[in-house]
Amino acid sequence: MEGSTMMVSSKNKKMGSSKEQLYHVIHKVPQGDTPYVKAKHAQLVQKDPEAAIVLFWKAINAGDRVDSALKDMAVVMKQLNRSEEAIEAVKSFRGRCSKQAQESLDNVLIDLYKKCGKVDKQIDLIKRKLRLIYQGEIFNGKPTKTARSHGKKFQVSVKQETSRLLGNLGWAYMQKPNYLTAEVVYRKAQMIDPDANKACNLGLCLIKQGRYDDARSVLGEILRGQIPGSEDIRTRSRAERLLVELEAVQPPLELSDILGLDDDFVNGLDRLMNEWAPVRSKRLPIFEEISSFRDQLAC
């Protein structure tokens, strides 16, 4: 009888443990009773972002998963329109984070600068990340890194990361607005790793310059499925809307009305890339392959 009771007790413990594990899997929260675990529970289960921020602060001060706590806290602050505060937090406490976390913290800062409209700071940080790529110092020297989106892991190559950063840089220049510089950067991004979303942005950039035929050509490639990602419904819908807007725009702008190149950056993007670092064995082939787009514009 006693042995039977012990077996039932052991079975109940296993069932309880299984339910607890299932709970954490469903809600995508870690197990434990630390400040960081409590913060994630407040964020994802209780849906209480203010309480989550307080607990993330406690986790950082306690040295509990500081890398994740700082990044997660900044994301929650951004959602609450506290981006300025998040920027200061990342700058103040990133020194407590590991070397491996610095790259992702830079990505967080880029998003925060974008949210706050700090375009120049966003541009400077993106350039710095591109410089690290050029020097072969991104991904801790590895050709790929593991990224996570919506709970799923996937591999990102250096080539994809370069194109993504150039796409972000192009959009930042669009906000200045410096459309000619944005065009140069977008075309560089498309040469490295083309996708339909950046092609839409390039089409918009060309419309802003009054270069309607060029814009029609780029947007038409999306609708004909000639660019990776063209099958995405939202991207195709955006391309269609841009084509409609294109037909309704004013006559082309005079050349004098178009903003010129950013002499500090794209006055020869290739030249600047050569200035970023001496020739090294780690130099990426993608930068060797990029020809001067400014010469093409002059033709």
Rank of each mutant, 00 (worst) to 15 (best):
Y134D: 08
N197L: 05
R211Q: 15
V158N: 08
S157Y: 05
N140C: 05
R224A: 15
I227N: 07
G203Y: 12
K188Q: 15
V185N: 03
A189T: 06
L223R: 07
Q190S: 09
I126L: 11
I207N: 02
I138P: 00
I126F: 06
K145Y: 04
P177V: 10
G225Q: 11
K142M: 10
K142I: 00
Q160N: 07
I133G: 05
E161S: 12
K127V: 06
Y134E: 14
K142G: 03
T162G: 07
Y186M: 14
I222Q: 04
L202R: 01
I138F: 05
R128S: 04
D213L: 06
G203M: 10
Q135A: 15
R164C: 02
I207Y: 02
D124M: 05
D193I: 01
P177I: 00
V218H: 09
L169H: 05
Y212W: 06
R164E: 13
S230R: 08
H150A: 09
P228H: 05
Q175N: 05
Q190Y: 03
A199E: 07
V184T: 07
N178W: 07
Q160G: 11
Y179L: 04
A147V: 08
L130I: 14
E231A: 12
S149Q: 09
V218T: 11
E137N: 07
G229I: 08
L204K: 06
G167P: 13
I126Q: 02
K127S: 09
N178E: 14
G170L: 02
R211T: 01
I123E: 06
L169G: 03
D232K: 10
G141E: 08
V185Y: 11
Q155F: 02
Q209R: 12
I222P: 03
K188V: 10
L219K: 08
K188I: 13
G167W: 13
P228L: 09
I207K: 05
L169M: 09
E221V: 00
T146Q: 14
G167S: 13
S217G: 00
Q175C: 01
I192L: 10
R224M: 08
T144M: 12
Q135G: 14
D193E: 14
Q155W: 02
R224P: 00
A189H: 03
K188L: 11
R128D: 10
L169I: 06
C200M: 03
K127D: 12
E221H: 13
D213H: 08
R148G: 01
I126W: 05
K152Y: 05
R187V: 12
N201G: 03
K145C: 09
